[in-house]
Structure formats: structure tokens, C-alpha cells
Write a protein that binds this DNA or RNA. Structure first.
Lengths: 204, 204
DNA sequence: TTGCAAAACGGACCCACGGTCCATATCTTG
DNA sequence: CAAGATATGGACCGTGGGTCCGTTTTGCAA
């Protein structure tokens, strides 16, 4: 899983050095904007050329880092125990999923921010990690009887966990972690709540 | 309200020329990123210095444009007829408010995108137009009995109308305007629906 | 071990863009 | 009309992402 089949070993070594260095830099609390590619290269002890050769561009590096940090959660979702893993009742799983996303953003604030920002040309919605979250969430939502528009609902729920919103609430407004998890859970609950009449009140 | 009390009239004239030119440029379908300050200056027939003197920086220009386009809606909210204006039952008003935001983003895609993106250093959540929307929405939500966490709920609902999401759904996925409005309305309805038990874990 | 081509390196270099500066042109007032 | 105040505009700067290419490393094979 961790090796690219690049033939040469120095390439692999450098790639990992860069990844490690970037990981360290983005963990140190700082505006993601303040970390330049040159910084990363220097921290990794390689030249900029190497860095770009390995990851294509800034977004590529960010993506790689993101995926790496996401790995454990992904595993937990694909084959872990409830409430994250499969075999959980849909409603619980949706809540667990969103809670996991929230916690992830809470823990990886700067990185997530950087990644979502970097989508200046390509919106965050084209990133395939988003596609994965959305696809999974939608699939689970679809199993809940009486719930329509799972596609849009999945988008809307995920939007509530956008990195910059989370960052704003946690950083600027000082809302503590547990409080935010409760609030999100409450929100999700409202959305999932078996309405008095599915589709009833929303008549245009 | 529309004049700055700059003493000199050419300043005012240039300011409006810039505003008009920028408005035109951002209406022409193009990635907001492709429009540089130099472009705007050229289109307005002024020098870059003038442009920066008048608006401070790129974000300032975007903000000014945004506010200008927002003006009608703002009036409709402050003193217009229902369902947008005051004196509307809270639930209806919330729905109308979010529908208005959605329509606005639908109509002003590139500009809204540019503004939200420009928040690389300052998240969109610091912009005071956001504060206004959020404050208003929260206030209205607060009038709905049995609804807790209005602050977070307001954020979460607004998140569902983020410019890049709207853009993605409308552009990439080709979801038609009316469909999206329905979906958002349905989502809002779910959130506002008087839950069977507020705060309870709705489980089997 | 040595030879050699392919692959990777790295940092000088390029360029686009936001933002600044200041000599000059334009107002405004008395 | 003079003179101070104010605005102008485009040359100029710093920064940071991304590229290029001469040099070094690696893998393979003789």
C-alpha cells in the first residue's frame, strides 16, 4: 500500500520524506497559506523539482497527505465494527459517518482547510475523496425508508462539516469539540427524523 | 447610500466605472480566477493604482460588487412583503430566506464563487455579509418553538447554499434551477419539522 | 568491476498576479 | 488665476507556483 512501483528507490525514499515533512509542517499550527512548496522541499531536504515530480502540483501533495491521514477512518468504515462499519442500522451509521468527518476536520484543521481552499480552479466537489464520502453517505441514506432526495441530502449534510466552517466555529468562536459534535448530531437527527409525513409539509 | 463623500467627483466617477466594468466581467461566464485586477482596470479604462485606491484590494472590490447586487434582496428582507419581509411566520420566512440565498447564488455564480474563494486568508465566515445572513437567520430560527441550537442550525442551513456546492450541482451535474429549489426547500422543511421528540435519539 | 543509459535530482529560472509608489495631471477653493 | 490638495496610471516589486536542464544516482549487464 505504501510503495509506488517506481523502479528507483531514491524516488520512493524522497517521496516519503516529502510526505513526512509536509505532514509535520501542516501539523504545526499555522495558516496553510504560510506553507509554501519551497518550505516543504527545504524541510524534506530535497529540491523543488523533486517535489513537483513526485506530486504534480500543490493540490496533488495536499491530496496525498489527506488520503494518508484518512486511511484509518476509511478502513474503519469499510470493514470495521459498528457504528462506523457496515452492518450498522442506516440512521446510526449516518450519524457516525458525519461525526467521523467532523472529528477528522477538527483534528486536521489546517490540512483540510488547505485542501478545500486549493480548489480555486477545481471546486472541492471534484476531489474524489469528496465523491467517496458523498457516494457512501448517499447510499446509506437511501436505505432509510421515507427519505427522499438522498443525493442532495448527502451534499447538504456534508456541507455542515466544511473545513472552514468547522475551523470558524472551533477557532474563532471557541466552541468546544464535544459541544460541536452534539450540535451536529442534533442537526443530523432532525434531518433523519421520520417526519410526521414524509414529503408532506413541503408543498410548493 | 450610493455615494461616497469623497470630495472629488472624478474619484466617484472612476469608482463607478470600475464597479460597472467588474460587474460586466464577472457576468461574462468565466472562471473568477481568470479575471485579474489588471483586467478590471483595463476594462474600466483606469490604472491599477486607481482601482486599488478605490477598493483597497481584490477582496474589497468583490465585496463592493457583491453588496451592490445584494441590495435589492436586502431591501426585500428588511421592509418587503411576505414571505421575505418581516411579519412572516418564522418557518415560512426561513424557507423564503434560504430560497432567496440559493437563487442569488444561482444568478451570481461566478461572483459568489470568487468572493468565497478569496477568503483564503480570511474565511468566508468573517465577511460581514455572512454575519448578516447568519444573524438574521438565527434570529428567525429562534422564534420557532422547540428548536434548539439556532446558531449552529443557521450555519448548517447556510452551508447547504455554499456557492461552490450550488455551482457544482447546477453546472457539473446539470440539476435545473427549480429542482434544486425544491430539494433545498425539502431539506429545510425536514430541519424545521417539529420533531417527534426534540433531542431524543430517534432509534428503533 | 566497470560501462552506460535511463531515471531522478535540485535549484536557478520564469512568469503571472496582487499590491505599492511617485512624478504628473486634475480638481477646488479663495 | 494661483496654489494646495487630491487623484491618476503605469512602471515597478515581492512572492510563490511551476518548469528546465545540466548533473548525479541507480540499475543492469557485460
Amino acid at each position: 500500500m505504501s510503495e509506488r512501483q517506481s523502479s528507483r528507490k531514491d524516488a520512493i525514499r524522497n517521496r516519503e520524506a516529502v510526505l513526512a515533512a509536509a505532514d509535520a509542517l501542516f501539523s504545526r499550527r499555522a495558516s496553510p497559506e504560510d506553507i509554501t512548496m519551497a518550505d516543504v522541499a527545504a524541510a524534506a531536504g530535497v529540491g523543488k523539482g523533486t517535489l513537483f515530480r513526485a506530486f504534480g502540483d500543490r493540490a496533488g501533495l495536499l491530496r496525498a497527505l489527506y488520503e494518508a491521514r484518512l486511511e484509518p477512518i476509511r478502513e474503519a468504515i469499510e470493514a470495521g465494527p459498528p457504528p462506523l462499519g457496515p452492518g450498522t442500522p442506516p440512521q446510526d451509521r449516518v450519524r457516525a459517518l458525519l461525526d467521523a468527518v467532523l472529528c477528522f476536520k477538527l483534528d486536521n484543521g489546517p490540512l483540510a482547510l488547505a485542501l478545500e481552499d486549493s480548489g480555486s480552479d477545481s471546486s472541492p466537489y471534484r476531489a474524489d475523496h469528496y465523491e467517496r464520502w458523498h457516494g457512501l453517505l448517499r447510499a446509506v441514506l437511501e436505505q432509510i425508508p421515507g427519505l427522499t432526495d438522498s443525493d442532495f441530502t448527502a451534499h447538504a449534510l456534508l456541507a455542515a462539516t466544511r473545513a472552514d466552517l468547522v475551523e470558524h466555529l472551533a477557532g474563532e468562536r471557541g466552541i468546544p469539540r464535544e459541544r460541536m459534535r452534539e450540535q451536529l448530531a442534533g442537526f443530523v437527527a432532525k434531518v433523519l427524523a421520520p417526519g410526521p409525513r414524509p414529503g408532506g409539509t413541503a408543498e410548493e
